[in-house]
Design a protein around this nucleic acid. Structure first.
Length: 228
DNA sequence: ACATTAACGATGA
DNA sequence: TCATCGTTAATGT
């Protein structure tokens, strides 16, 4: 997805569809857009969760870093996705670091506007319930995948997750992530990911290239993620 | 067994 | 030149 403008991002986001013109006008007015270079921090961990975030362009990751300096990515967020509602709703500091994986543009909706919209628009509140439910389902499935699946299923799930139709509605087939980053996303070493990606390529799910992969058969990838 | 880290050379941008 | 990839060896659980 290449939403070069805020209007394009809002137009392609399902949650705007049932807002009144006045509500959408206020949202657009309150929203700020900022660019981030690859590798820079979008939101530091443990800082106030002052915004709900939308990815206009690029790709972000949500990660936690241990005292020893090891990082674990629990979600990669492609363009077109909205996230961070959990921390905003709880009014708690952000429990994870948000980092730009590539040059990215991020839209920020202030917490006050977000809370207002939640009260002012019943359809938006319902959409948010569905969004949270989708997120919960995704992570429940992820736990199951890790407990019951093999390594191949684990990598397939990590990649297929980027195509979750509710959470990440407009992910491009070509995923510009290094194997190192895919490893962080799947909780596996780069070497194992390298071997597994080659297997997924043999099985016709994707095609490997330098610095990116192209998912050529999402159904196959999802089937493998379920334990095929 | 099988994953992890470390290390190496090869190669693409 | 630097990041990334593919591979191997040593090590740990």
């Amino acid at each position: 997805m290449t939403t070069t403008t805020l209007d394009a991002l809002l137009a392609s986001s399902t949650w705007t569809r049932q807002l009144t013109d006045a509500q959408l006008d206020r949202v657009r007015f309150d929203m700020a857009v900022r660019p981030f270079a690859a590798g820079t921090t979008v939101c530091a961990r443990a800082t106030p969760s002052a915004h709900w975030l939308g990815v206009m362009d690029g790709m972000l990751k949500l990660e936690n870093i241990t005292e020893a300096g090891k990082s674990s990515t629990f979600a990669s967020v492609p363009a077109g996705a909205w996230f961070g509602e959990g921390a905003v709703l709880k009014g708690e500091p952000r429990p994870y670091e948000v980092v730009a994986l590539r040059d990215s543009a991020v839209a920020f909706l202030p917490r006050s506007s977000f809370m207002w919209l939640l009260e002012d628009s019943h359809p938006f509140a319902l959409w948010m319930v569905g969004h949270l439910n989708a997120r919960l389902g995704h992570f429940v499935a992820m736990v199951q995948n890790q407990r019951l699946g093999d390594i191949t299923a684990q990598v397939a799930y990590g990649l297929a997750g980027l195509f979750h139709s509710d959470l990440y509605p407009s992910t491009e087939r070509r995923i510009t992530l290094s194997q190192e980053e895919i490893g962080r996303l799947c909780g596996l070493s780069r070497q194992v990911v390298n071997r597994t990606l080659q297997e997924l390529q043999e099985r016709g799910a994707l095609r490997l290239s330098y610095g990116s992969i192209e998912v050529t058969d999402l159904d196959v990838l999802k089937a493998i993620a379920r334990g095929g």
